[in-house]
């Protein structure tokens, strides 16, 4: 890789990280969310960048403990934009981002609590008119308002992108693991609680929310006498089958292809 910058030269870069309340998959205890913590890790590893953490949500003791998990990574302060339960956090985050004007916004791909639809970064990008990148694996360098980043693709592939800042980037499990959260800094860190008007999410209030159930997976029975074949079948990752890779197409052509697929799959009618 032509990595001429040994550390991402990001001095003076203003990075905002949006963090949420996580939930442990087994015990459902609140914690720092894994992907958001990775986003914080990525921001902290950008040398010379100023990192601001933001959380929009309720301020109660359970949440505070989870938020202090991020402070324990060595962050001095976190802004808590206080919201009512079940509020739509997009407007308040949009306003906050517009006001603080960061060059780069990092966040996890999807939250571990609430809707967890993963749509928030896109809604923010739409509202702010900024580009959005998913699966950010590394920030290589930032020069003259343009960041060179690596995007993680399935099966360990990486794609180098140049993106004009300001931009929003989401990280998933392919980003480097978050550092340990330490008790001392977590206890000392400041919570800057700012009450904000909440906009209720009308559709959310009508939804009925229940814990997800793991669906049983259909076993593929491979009838083969050779152990090698059976092993291969068991170990192979299922291919999506079908699909096509489009390269060097205009955004219109790309959108056209996606639109066509959605229609075929019956998502759009």
């Amino acid at each position: 890789m032509p990595l001429n910058a040994e550390s991402p030269g990001a001095s003076g870069l203003n990075v905002a990280v949006l963090v949420s309340i996580g939930r442990h998959p087994l015990t459902a205890r609140t914690r720092r969310a894994d992907q958001d913590a990775r986003a914080v890790e990525m921001a902290l590893s950008l040398k010379g960048a100023s990192v601001n953490l933001m959380h929009a949500g309720q301020h109660d003791s359970d949440n505070e403990e989870a938020i202090r998990g991020y402070l324990g990574m060595g962050v001095e302060e976190i802004r808590l934009l206080e919201q009512m339960p079940q509020a739509d956090v997009v407007p308040v985050l949009t306003d906050a981002l517009r006001a603080s004007a960061p060059q780069l916004v990092l966040t996890g791909t999807r939250a571990e609590t609430g809707e967890g639809s993963g749509i928030l970064p896109y809604l923010l990008a739409e509202a702010l008119g900024w580009p959005v990148i998913n699966g950010l694996a590394a920030v290589e360098k930032v020069e003259k308002g343009v960041a060179t980043v690596l995007q993680a693709l399935p099966r360990g592939k990486r794609r180098r992108l140049r993106v004009r800042l300001p931009a929003i980037a989401t990280v998933d499990a392919s980003a480097p693991a978050a550092r340990q959260s330490a008790f001392g800094p977590a206890r000392r860190g400041e919570l800057d609680v700012q009450p904000h008007a909440s906009e209720a999410d009308p559709s959310l209030s009508q939804w009925q929310i229940q814990p997800a159930r793991k669906r049983p997976k259909r076993l593929k029975i491979v009838k083969s006498s050779s152990a090698r074949d059976r092993f291969k079948a068991a170990a192979a990752k299922s291919d999506g089958g079908g699909g096509q890779t489009l390269t060097d197409v205009t955004p219109e052509q790309g959108a056209e292809a996606i639109f066509k697929l959605l229609r075929e799959e019956g998502v759009l009618r």
Partner: peptide, 19 residues
């Protein structure tokens, strides 16, 4: 408690103990 620097599996084990 201050550096958050328990080596190798230390951090993972502590996270598990907490969660």
């Amino acid at each position: 408690l201050e550096h958050g620097n328990t080596p190798n599996k230390g951090a993972e084990v502590l996270d598990n103990l907490i969660a």
